[in-house]
Design a protein around this nucleic acid. Structure first.
Length: 470
DNA sequence: TGAAATGTTGGGGCG
DNA sequence: ACGCCCCAACATTTC
């Protein structure tokens, strides 16, 4: 009896309901399908492919090299597998991107019609968006985070306790063929991943170690510390969580075990934001393209390729913005506080459409996630559910001074400003000539002048937003 | 999970 | 001692 475990966004052995179910049935064949064909314009981005490669390497090694790799339309791939092999069942953990829901539904129906046992499980969310417990009393989904989380999530049945890793896994002899992992061509042809390699430890064991380390070093001052990008007080679990190297259930209960206080509560509510994003994507499947608040549809966004490029490359002349964008480029990650700052800058100072930012993040982030990325960009743009109000515009100078006062983070990623005094670090254009000279800075030579005036562009944005209301 | 403008308060300098 | 002004510090309002 042979059962297929189809790994997708659940690249782990512990707390994996589909895997646990499969090994209880009999011998398994673990498979992974790189399905760019069904993904439309949501093909996995560059940095994410890099992560995926290493995560699959790790998982395959935990599976003693038994993983089979495929590429192409998942439905067709599975049809071929089933045709040439005696498969009794196919199991997976659910994904929630609209294109995956559509695809998986078709596959499920076809397998049922073919009399092959098929089951899907919840392996990625604490509360699934289809759970009627987390709808409002009137039967519609929440559009505001706080009641969604407090009343909806916390009022519902608690999340599943994490499952143990299966004691033993029996592998079926198979004749599937399939590709080698390297054949999926997930790693870059030009070596832009040198720094990323140094930055991350990838895989299930590394994810769990990161969780333990965060709980030991970061959680106790999470609520305040999470705002300071130079501090080590955020979990950095997002890529592990996106790829399912660790489950939200494992994180949830590990945090809860530390006892209730403002820090654990706040950290757990951040998992709640992830749930909220998934709920929004599920109920508003166009969220990656359409403004949730329709009144923004007529907003006069600017087309400005040059400024967009300057933003992408970290050459805006605003040091905290540039530091963030360079962190992203070099490491595939950006600290949350800085994500808000660079997002606000793109949308509200450059007046460039949030789609542009979202797409850049999609390609550059190792934690790029259709739900979190689109919901968060809509949030920062003010177009989304429970969004930052349109008039909330971050001042990159003030934010830098407030959250990176000593400049440790900014100087790390913008080393050309290493020697400028703190007083001028976030506004070098205001520094007296002598100070710039002493610090070895020549504006527009080795560090740009601001590409936009924040005060003026802020007023312009407020005016444009105001016009929408009228 | 803002920022800037505006309003309020209270301490200290000073005639 | 007192009133007046200044202004920093804090609070509130507005965008």
């Amino acid at each position: 009896m042979t059962y297929i475990t189809w790994f997708r966004q659940d690249l782990r052995l512990s707390d994996n309901p589909a895997l646990t179910h499969a090994v209880e049935q009999g011998d398994i064949i673990p498979i992974y399908i790189l399905d760019d064909e069904s993904a439309g314009d949501r093909k996995i981005g560059g940095a994410s492919r890099w992560w995926l490669h290493h995560s699959l390497t790790d998982l395959n090694s935990s599976l003693h090299g038994h993983m089979k790799f495929f590429e192409g339309d998942a439905h067709e791939v599975l049809q071929k597998i089933v045709k040439h092999n005696d498969i009794k069942g196919v199991y997976w953990n659910r994904c929630y991107e609209p294109w995956r829901i559509k695809r998986d539904k078709k596959i499920k129906e076809w397998l049922q019609d073919s009399n092959i046992d098929v089951k899907s499980f919840n392996g990625s969310l604490l509360w699934e968006p289809c759970d009627k417990q987390i709808y409002k009393n009137d039967g519609t989904p929440y559009r505001v985070f706080t009641p969604f989380y407090r009343k909806g999530c916390l009022g519902a049945d608690p999340p599943r306790q994490p499952l143990n890793r299966p004691d033993r896994i029996d592998y079926a002899d198979d004749d599937l063929g399939g590709l080698k992992l390297d054949d999926l061509n997930l790693t870059p042809t030009i070596p832009w991943d040198t720094q990323m390699k140094k930055e991350w430890k990838i895989g299930e064991e590394a994810a769990y170690a990161r969780l333990k380390e965060f709980i030991k070093d970061g959680l106790s001052d999470y609520k305040e510390g999470r705002n300071f990008p130079a501090k080590n007080h955020v979990s950095r679990l997002s890529p592990h969580l996106h790829w399912g190297e660790i489950s939200p259930n494992q994180i949830w209960y590990a945090a809860q075990a530390e006892g209730e206080n403002k820090n654990t509560d706040h950290f757990m509510s951040e998992l709640g934001w992830r749930e909220f994003s998934y709920s929004l994507l599920y109920h508003f499947p166009n969220i990656d393209k359409k403004n949730l608040q329709k009144k923004f549809n007529d907003f006069p966004w600017k087309e400005d390729k040059k400024k967009l490029k300057a933003w992408q490359k970290g050459q805006t002349g605003y040091p905290i913005v540039d530091a963030g964008m360079r962190e992203l480029w070099q490491t595939g990650y950006m600290h949350n506080r800085v994500r808000m700052i660079v997002g606000s800058f793109l949308v509200k100072n450059l007046l460039i459409h949030w789609h542009q930012g979202e797409q850049w993040f999609w390609d550059c982030l190792v934690d790029a996630d259709a739900a979190s990325n689109t919901a968060s960009w809509q949030w920062v743009a003010g177009t989304g559910a429970d969004a930052a109000p349109y008039f909330r515009i971050f001042n990159p100078v003030t934010q830098g001074e407030k959250f990176d006062g000593a400049g440790e983070y900014t100087r790390k990623y913008v080393p050309e400003l290493k020697n400028i005094p703190d007083k001028y670090l976030f506004k070098p254009w205001e520094a007296p000539r002598a100070i710039l000279q002493k610090a070895g800075i020549e504006l527009d030579k080795n560090y740009p002048n601001p590409i936009v005036d924040v005060k003026q562009s802020r007023e312009q944005a407020l005016e444009a937003f105001q016009a929408l209301k009228d």
